[in-house]
Amino acid sequence: TTEYTFTDDEEARRAIEELKKRGLTFRYEKHGTTWRVRVD
């Protein structure tokens, strides 16, 4: 499991789109302004 942290909404959304394109399994949660994206 790899975890990424983003504080920029645009950056987080781009990363999420990219992961979807690659067909990877991931989860994300947003805490205030911080996004945590975990890739299995």
Rank of each mutant, 00 (worst) to 15 (best):
R38S: 14
R22Y: 07
I16F: 05
E18I: 11
L24N: 04
A15R: 04
E17K: 10
R27M: 11
R36K: 14
V39Y: 03
D8H: 05
H31G: 03
T25L: 09
W35Y: 05
Y4S: 02
T33D: 14
K30G: 01
A15G: 04
D8K: 05
R14I: 10
Y28M: 08
T25D: 06
K21Q: 08
I16M: 13
W35S: 02
T5Q: 06
T2N: 07
R27Y: 14
E29K: 07
F26T: 03
H31W: 08
E11Q: 11
G23H: 04
R22S: 11
D40F: 15
V37N: 00
T2Y: 14
E10L: 10
E3S: 06
L24W: 07
D9H: 07
E17N: 10
R13H: 11
E18G: 07
R14K: 12
K20W: 07
W35V: 06
D8M: 04
R14Q: 09
T5M: 10
D8F: 04
D9Q: 08
A15L: 14
V39H: 02
T7C: 05
T33N: 14
K21S: 09
F6V: 01
K30M: 05
F26P: 07
D40K: 08
D9G: 08
D40G: 11
E10R: 10
A12S: 02
T25Y: 10
R22G: 05
R36T: 15
L24Y: 13
E29N: 05
R13N: 07
Y4Q: 03
T2H: 12
L19A: 04
R36I: 15
V39S: 02
I16D: 00
E18K: 07
K21G: 06
R36E: 06
T7I: 07
T25M: 10
G23V: 01
T34P: 00
G23Y: 03
T2P: 04
R22Q: 13
Y28H: 03
R38I: 15
T5V: 14
F6Y: 10
F6I: 03
G32S: 03
T34N: 06
T7V: 07
W35D: 01
T34F: 11
K21M: 08
T7N: 11
T2R: 13
A12I: 04
I16K: 01
R13W: 14
R13A: 09
R22V: 06
T5Y: 14
E3C: 12
G32A: 04
A15E: 04
K21F: 06
E11R: 05
T5S: 06
K21C: 11
A12P: 01
E11A: 12
T5G: 02
T25N: 11
V37H: 00
T7W: 09
A12Y: 06
E3P: 02
D8V: 05
Y28K: 03
V37F: 09
L19P: 00
G23N: 05
T1A: 11
I16C: 05
G32M: 03
F26L: 07
E3W: 15
E17S: 09
E3N: 05
G23E: 03
K20F: 10
W35Q: 02
R13D: 04
D40L: 15
H31I: 15
R14V: 09
W35I: 13
K30T: 04
Y4L: 11
A15H: 08
W35C: 05
R36F: 15
L19N: 01
G32Q: 04
R27V: 14
G32P: 01
R22A: 13
F26Y: 08
A12Q: 01
T5F: 14
H31K: 11
E17M: 10
A15Q: 05
K21I: 08
E11M: 09
T2A: 08
E29M: 07
R38L: 15
K20N: 07
G23I: 01
A15V: 13
R36M: 12
A12D: 00
H31T: 13
D9S: 08
Y28A: 14
I16E: 01
D40W: 15
T1I: 14
H31N: 13
T7Q: 09
R27F: 14
T5R: 06
T7A: 06
I16H: 00
D40Q: 12
K20L: 12
V39R: 00
T34G: 06
E11I: 07
E18S: 09
